[in-house]
């Protein structure tokens, strides 16, 4: 028991220390960061936050961009993943297993390798500098995992329920709308969060597809803050932007932590 507590404590420190360091840095003056021991001036400041929020464009805009992109990506993924998963859950075992293996390989593929091809794609179809267009590769990349998770949710439903609905006269879309989709809601929620997280954190594709400053997503915008001056790295502002950027995620994870964990373990056991 005692050992367990020590291990848990170590793990908490291990995972929280970078975050707390970031939080601490975001409230420090530039001098306090660079010369922590010999700094004669004030130590604490809100200037970093003031700076990122009053910059042009302000950080709020990037937060909004990322939020919009995340929601669009999630919605677009679910619109295709739910019917696909339903179909996959009805396939004959051999075909279902083959499809699953293909999907798992797709989910495991290092997507960074695709980004040059995606860039060509964006250029040819004129998809650059458009957040809605950016959600297309995002949802395509999220699709394999989403389909795997939602398929296992469909498979876990008792067969009787759908059969009862069929006998009651519900057609396929009505069964999905009134019976099946409501019943897989927990799995849909955890899948949505995973998709949203991916879209929120994605960097290389966003970097290459978006160049207009007012359309940047958070990760790219934050990286730009870090590289905004050639003389020094504005650690404080950088930290403040990171802290602000993680608040929406924190709120979301706090609300949906149960679903996230059940979704993750479900994928692990039944995939």
């Amino acid at each position: 028991m005692k050992h367990k507590i020590i291990w848990v404590l170590l793990l908490v420190i291990w995972s929280l220390s970078p975050l707390s360091w970031q939080l601490y840095t975001s409230f420090c003056t530039q001098e306090a960061i660079t010369h922590p021991l010999t700094n004669p001036g004030p130590h604490w400041t809100l200037n970093n936050y003031r700076q990122v929020l009053t910059a042009s464009p302000p950080l709020w805009d990037y937060l909004f961009n990322s939020l919009l992109l995340g929601l669009t990506t999630t919605l677009l993924t679910l619109v295709f993943a739910i019917p696909a998963s339903y179909a996959l859950s009805k396939l004959k075992p051999l075909l279902a297993r083959t499809t699953k293996i293909i999907l798992i390989s797709a989910a495991l593929f290092p997507y960074v390798l695709l980004f040059l091809a995606l860039l060509e794609f964006a250029r040819n179809f004129n998809l650059g500098n458009n957040l809605f267009a950016l959600s297309i590769p995002y949802s395509a990349l999220s699709m394999p995992l989403a389909i795997l998770l939602i398929t296992s949710a469909f498979k876990d439903l008792p067969k009787d329920l759908e059969e009862a609905a069929r006998i009651e006269g519900l057609g396929i879309w009505q069964r999905l709308r009134w019976v099946l989709i409501p019943l897989i809601a927990p799995a849909t929620a955890s899948t949505s969060i995973l998709i949203f997280l991916f879209s929120w954190n994605e960097y290389p594709i966003a970097l290459t597809w978006i160049s207009k400053p007012e359309l940047l997503t958070l990760p790219v915008a934050i990286a730009r803050i870090a590289g905004s001056s050639i003389y020094s790295v504005p650690y404080g502002a950088y930290a403040a932007a990171t802290v602000l950027g993680s608040i929406p995620l924190l709120i979301m994870v706090l609300i949906f932590q149960k679903q996230i964990i059940s979704g993750l373990t479900k994928g692990a056991v039944k995939g």
């Binding site: 008792p158 009787d160 329920l161 059969e163 009862a164 019976v179 019943l183």
Partner: peptide, 8 residues
Amino acid sequence: FQSYALYP
């Protein structure tokens, strides 16, 4: 149905 199959 044996399981009643009520929509939960």
